[in-house]
């Protein structure tokens, strides 16, 4: 099939004037890559939540570049070791997690050559009293991404901005819950 295809493609290209080939092939390729890039980056945003919620720390760290940075209003964690260390506060690697998860939505991706920026929204849902899902934390992610030599994308910088509740309100809620237990 690939031979037939190649022959057909060649025939197709041969039939078009040279300049047109260069232009249309380049623009088709560039346009297709843009669509691929957008879908690949949307996927990273979803993979992030999947690996975080599954406590797949190795997979989570692998989403970042070697100089990748995770930060929020409180502080920042830069490089694979620092990011991994931050994660271990959530419990042991690979632990089964049925008590919470992240719903991620609203991806907005801007690709500029080999760099990209993306924003998205997260809703952290926790197990409530009768087991019902209870939205506990809502916020925005702002990402900077870089294309890798293998064509894939990695996060160079992710900023997590909590909107509801604020960090201070969240600390109070957690303290109240601990006191209640």
């Amino acid at each position: 099939m690939s031979l037939v295809l190649r022959a057909a493609a060649l025939a197709l290209l041969a039939a078009i004037p040279a300049t047109a080939v260069a232009q249309s092939a380049a623009s088709i390729e560039a346009r297709l890559r843009r669509a691929e890039d957008e879908l690949a980056i949307q996927r990273i945003i979803v993979d992030y939540a999947a690996r975080l919620d599954a406590r797949d720390y190795k997979g989570y760290v692998a989403l970042f570049t070697p100089d990748g940075e995770w930060s929020n209003r409180i502080g920042s964690h830069k490089g694979p070791e620092a990011i991994r260390k931050m994660l271990t506060t959530l419990g042991p690697e690979g632990a089964t997690n049925t008590s919470n998860y992240h719903l991620v939505s609203n991806p907005r991706v801007e690709v500029n050559g080999d760099r990209a920026t993306a924003t998205s929204r997260y809703l952290f849902v926790m197990r409530g009293k009768d087991g019902s899902p209870r939205p506990a934390l809502a916020g925005l992610y702002a990402d900077e991404l870089v294309r890798q030599s293998d064509g894939g994308w990695k996060i160079q910088r992710r900023v997590a901005n909590d909107v509801m509740p604020t960090r201070e309100e969240w600390a109070k809620i957690i303290a109240a819950e601990r006191a209640g237990q």
Partner: peptide
């Protein structure tokens, strides 16, 4: 043209 294109994950 193709050589100039950065390698995609699905090369």
């Amino acid at each position: 043209l193709l050589a100039a294109a950065p390698a995609q994950a699905q090369t």
